[in-house]
Every structure is written in C-alpha cells, then in structure tokens.
Amino acid sequence: MTQSPIDPAVYDDLKDAAGAEFVVELVTTFLDEAPGMIAELRIALETEDNDGFRRAAHSLKSNANVFGAHALAAPARELELTGTAQATPDVLALLERVDLEFVRASAALKSMQNE
C-alpha cells in the first residue's frame, strides 16, 4: 500500500486559508514538535502512563491531519484508540509505522515548502 505522505488538496486548502508564509511557520513548528510527541509515546509505554500515551497519540494524529498527512495520522489514531500503554506486538508495529510515516511526511513537507 503506497499512499502519498501529504494530501496535496488538504495542504493547498490550508495555504489558501492561512497564507503561504504562515504555513511555512506552521510546518516548521510541526517538524520541531512531532519528534517530541513520538518520544512521549515511547516514554509513556515504558512508564505505562495511559493518559500520556493517549494524549501524545492524539496530538500527533491531530497535527498530521492539519497537513493532510493521512498515512501518519492513521497509525497515530489507532494508538490513541488502543487506550492502554501496553507494549504489545500490535502497538510496537504501529509505533514503527509512525516513525516511518513521520520521516516520509517531513521529507514531503520540506520539499513542498521549497516548491
């Protein structure tokens, strides 16, 4: 299954609504903040912090959706719905997908900014 990391329609709508310059700032903020959210997911798993786990997954999902990063939002949402911070094989697989999709999304966002 290959999905484009960023939905161009969502990204263009965002640019139209908020302005291209602002979107550059917003993308930079997201790229700064997202690694922290992913790190929080792992920390919450280790400490079995259910609330922290759900919140970090929720934030990541929410921000991915802002830019149309559906492929990143999907595993984040599944993690959010898991509810408990248990390192099951499914959860670990989802985390790996999050890592991978974040790399792809951030590369796509960076290249879109330079367009």
Partner: peptide, 8 residues
C-alpha cells in the same frame, strides 16, 4: 495544549 493547533 498543542502548539501547532494554537498557532493555526
């Protein structure tokens, strides 16, 4: 609580 959301 999320910076991206606050900015947007």
């Amino acid at each position: 609580d999320n910076r991206v959301n606050r900015l947007l």
